[in-house]
């Protein structure tokens, strides 16, 4: 079930780590599109942890889990309260 509030908060977090406009397609790779680079990703994960009061364990620090808006929503749906 999509969570509108979670999505709004996710998009707000994304806007804090990139100055580029977010893609219309939720499945688009944020790395391949150049929206996120290798040093923005750690910032993004830290910002998600703060916003959603979660701790992303090191075993989950896989770029694929944070590759697109859809994948981040799926991760948060599973791990965020």
């Amino acid at each position: 079930m999509p969570d509108a509030s979670r999505r709004t908060r996710l998009l707000a977090v994304l806007k804090t780590v990139t100055s580029q406009p977010l893609p219309d397609d939720d499945e688009e790779s944020l790395f391949e599109s150049g929206l996120l680079d290798s040093f923005a990703l750690p910032d993004l994960v830290s910002a998600l942890e703060r916003e959603f009061s979660i701790k992303v364990p090191d075993r989950d620090l896989n770029p694929r889990k944070f590759d697109s808006i859809a994948r981040m929503e799926a991760y948060l749906a599973e791990h965020a309260a």
Binding site: F31, S38, F39, P42, D58, P63
Partner: peptide
């Protein structure tokens, strides 16, 4: 080298 993965891990570890 998967730079994204390496940097993500290194910045934490």
């Amino acid at each position: 080298m998967n730079g994204l993965s390496v940097i993500l891990q290194a910045t934490r570890k």
